[in-house]
C-alpha cells in the first residue's frame, strides 16, 4: 500500500523563524520539508505515512488576514493532493489555536480531505471548533509535544483510512457533542460507586454525560378570535389509521404521518390505533380520542366555539425518537400548517 501523504501546518514559532516579532510572517509552502513537530509525527507514522510538505504561517498574519490566508493555504494544500492534513498542535497558544481550527475546518469541509488538529482544552480555538472537528486534547505547553503526537498520529491515520472513530475518551479528542459508544473496563455499577466515593471525599470526578443547555423560543401572540380560528391537531402519541399504513416505528421513529380528518367525526378503535411502543397501548387502542381528541373538537366546531378543525393531523412516535429527528419533522409540518393557514395547534403527548 502506498504511504499516506500528509501536509502539516505550523506557525512561525514552531518553524523556528521567530517568536512574537515574526508573527506577521505570511503563509509559505515548503515542499518536501519536515519541520519541528513534523519530525515527531514522521517517526510516529513509521512506514504508514509521510509528510510531503509543511505550510508555515505567522499567527498574527493569519488572524489579521484571515480570508486571504485561508484561501492561500487552501491552494497550497490542494497543490499537494494530500490524503491527510494535520495542523499544530497549538497547545494553549490562542491565535495559533484559532488558525489551526480555521484551516483544519476549511481543509476538511471545503477540500474534503481528512484533517486533524490538537489543542489544550482552554484554547479559544476549542470553543470555536470542537463541535466541527476532531481536536486532540493536549497539555498547555510544548512540553506536552510527545504525548500530543502519540495521540494525534494514530487518530490521524484512522481518519486518513476512513476507519470508524471511537469515543472521545478512547481516541483522545475533545468531545464533539456526538455521543459514541464504547466498552469501559469496569461495569457501570462499579463506575457509579467509584464516582460516588470521589464525590463523597470532595475529590475531582468526571461525569460521563454533562447536562445540556436548552434553547428557548418566545411565545407567539394569543389567538384573538377563537370562533373563527382554524385549529390543528398534532400528536407524538403515535395515533395512526389502523394498520399503520406509513409503518411509523414503535420507537426511534424515522418519519411522521400526515392523515386526513375529512368526514371523521370521532376516532374509533376500529379505524385508528397507536404505533407508540413506549406506553401501555391498551387505552389508546380502545379509544384513540384519549390521545387525539377529535370527538371533542368536532363538537366544539359544531357549536361554533372554534372556527374549524384543520382537516389534516400530524402524528409521530415520541418514544426514543431523537430530538433532532422530532425537530426536523416538526419544522417540516409546521410549514405545511402555515401554508394551510392554521391559526393555532394543540399538540398532545403521551
Amino acid at each position: 500500500m502506498a504511504k499516506i501523504k500528509v501536509v502539516h501546518y505550523i506557525n512561525q514559532f514552531f518553524a523556528q523563524i521567530g517568536g512574537e516579532e515574526k508573527a506577521d510572517y505570511p503563509a509559505e509552502l515548503r515542499v518536501g520539508e519536515i519541520i519541528g513537530p513534523g519530525t515527531a509525527f514522521e517517526s510516529a507514522f513509521g512506514d504508514e505515512a509521510e509528510i510531503v510538505a509543511t505550510i508555515v504561517c505567522g499567527d498574527s498574519y493569519f488572524n489579521e488576514n484571515i480570508d486571504k490566508a485561508k484561501a492561500d493555504i487552501l491552494e497550497m494544500v490542494k497543490s499537494q493532493k494530500p490524503d491527510l492534513f494535520i495542523a499544530g498542535p497549538a497547545f494553549n497558544a490562542g491565535r495559533y489555536g484559532v488558525a489551526c481550527g480555521t484551516i483544519t475546518d476549511a481543509v476538511l469541509n471545503e477540500l474534503g480531505i481528512p484533517a486533524l488538529t490538537g489543542m489544550y482544552e482552554e484554547n479559544p480555538g476549542v470553543d470555536m471548533f470542537a463541535s466541527k472537528l476532531y481536536i486532540v486534547s493536549t497539555k498547555n505547553s510544548a512540553a506536552g509535544m510527545r504525548a500530543a503526537v502519540k495521540k494525534m498520529a494514530p487518530l490521524a491515520l484512522k481518519l486518513a483510512r476512513h476507519e470508524k472513530i471511537g469515543a472521545s475518551v478512547v481516541e483522545g479528542y475533545i468531545p464533539t457533542g456526538v455521543r459514541v459508544n464504547f466498552f469501559e473496563k469496569e461495569r457501570g455499577a462499579k463506575r457509579a460507586v467509584d464516582m460516588l466515593l470521589k464525590k463523597l471525599s470532595d475529590k475531582p470526578f468526571v461525569t460521563e454525560y454533562p447536562m445540556p443547555d436548552f434553547d428557548r423560543v418566545a411565545p407567539n401572540p394569543a389567538v384573538k378570535d377563537m370562533a373563527h380560528a382554524k385549529i390543528a391537531l398534532v400528536t407524538s402519541g403515535g395515533i395512526v389509521p389502523k394498520g399503520n399504513p406509513d409503518h411509523i416505528e414503535s420507537s426511534s421513529a424515522s418519519h411522521y404521518g400526515e392523515y386526513c380528518l375529512d368526514g371523521v367525526e370521532a376516532l374509533s378503535s376500529e379505524t385508528y390505533e397507536t404505533a407508540h411502543g413506549g406506553y401501555d397501548p391498551v387505552y389508546a387502542n380502545d379509544d384513540p380520542n384519549r390521545v387525539l381528541p377529535v370527538d371533542v373538537l368536532r363538537q366544539l366546531e359544531k357549536e361554533g366555539v372554534i372556527g374549524k378543525l384543520h382537516d389534516k393531523y400530524y402524528s409521530t412516535v415520541g418514544n426514543g425518537t431523537a430530538v433532532a429527528s422530532a425537530k426536523a419533522f416538526a419544522a417540516e409540518y409546521a410549514q405545511k400548517l402555515l401554508e394551510d393557514h392554521v391559526d393555532a395547534v394543540i399538540l398532545t403527548s403521551t
Binding site: 457533542g177 456526538v178 455521543r179 459514541v180 457501570g188 463506575r191 457509579a192 464516582m195 460516588l196 464525590k199 470526578f205 461525569t207 460521563e208 454525560y209 454533562p210 447536562m211 445540556p212 436548552f214 426511534s252 426514543g320 425518537t321 431523537a322 430530538v323 433532532a324 429527528s325
Partner: peptide
Amino acid sequence: YAGRDGKSQSLADAHASADAVV
C-alpha cells in the same frame, strides 16, 4: 437516546444537580 448519529440530546430532562452521571 442520542439518535442514530449520536447528535441529539440524550435525555428528555436535565438539571444542574445531575453533575455526576454514569
